[in-house]
Design a binder for these strands. Structure first.
Ligand SMILES: [Mn+2]
Ligand SMILES: [Mn+2]
Ligand SMILES: [Zn+2]
Ligand SMILES: [Zn+2]
Lengths: 145, 145
DNA sequence: CTATTATTGAAAATGTTTTTCAGTTAGCAT
DNA sequence: ATGCTAACTGAAAAACATTTTCAATAATAG
């Protein structure tokens, strides 16, 4: 089921701002935050109210169409989410992020932690950080810094 | 080595605001953000500039004395950090958080993801969410909601 | 096509974080 | 102990980010 159908089935309208924002998200390689989206669209001549960007992202997130992406020091933005259980790995150099799937990750660790802490675990936040293939290549070639 | 020594060795002064803030952090069970810390201390009759709270948390974090804690929807605040590799599990009902250690967690998963994505993994963000023992008990007793 | 209702967006309000800078204080030297 | 000096603080303002409000607009159903 595509996002437009999902939106409709959930009782929401397929408005112009929502189309614009999803179209941009779909091509995004790096996590985008509300103001960045607003700015990029404006640069493309598409002028949305900043409020609509906030509202649309909130809605898309609630519907599971996009995921929040964190950098080691906080939320950086959103990226389109595929269905099912997955996480992101983010390049520390260029921010490019890709998903990896992970349904059975953590099983043992969750067991251990539940026993140790007496908490009942029901969810987790996981992200990896590192270097994307391109940035690895660049680093090997010439530059440090 | 205690935090005061660590601070001194790193060339920083042991100022009154820093003492106040660390003392509060040390007793915190739930993640605290800058404005919450500012408010709590003010309620105790200790009036710091809000700027100092921001600066001090930034410094403590850079020195590894405190950790950032995320809720499923963003950074919620800071908690004291013990040394070494560890993560937090946060109660979704009352926010109480405890650490668990985890040096060898993820080894296999990291391998798999490196192969799949061609990224080189160098770090990770992991947090668990669930119910603390107290909130489990409360839930079993009477209430739903 | 029309009516209905969700949705948009400008503006203002609110909330958060950073910058600036004059005054203060911790730690060191005497 | 006392004074010196650079690190530090905090009030204020600026900058930035988010939420609220509400009249105007536009998407969908009929
Ligand atoms: Mn997982
Ligand atoms: Mn770990
Ligand atoms: Zn990269
Ligand atoms: Zn709890």
């Amino acid at each position: 089921m595509d996002w437009q159908t999902l939106l409709a089935k959930a009782g929401y309208r397929l408005s112009e701002p929502r189309k614009r924002i999803m179209k941009l998200m779909e091509t995004a390689e790096k996590p985008l935050n509300p103001l960045a989206i607003h700015r990029i669209l404006r640069e493309q001549g598409i002028h949305l109210g900043v409020v609509s960007v906030y509202r649309t992202l909130e809605l898309f997130f609630a519907l599971g169409l996009i995921s929040q992406v964190f950098q080691a020091d906080g939320l950086v933005g959103y990226l389109p989410a595929s269905f099912g259980h997955h996480h992101f790995i983010v390049c520390q150099k260029c921010q490019k992020a890709v998903e990896f799937s992970g349904s059975e990750d953590m099983r043992e660790l969750v067991q251990r932690v539940q026993t140790e802490t007496r908490y009942q675990v029901s969810d987790h936040l996981l992200q990896f950080y590192g270097l994307c293939p391109e940035c690895q290549a660049l680093l090997e070639a010439g530059g440090n810094s």
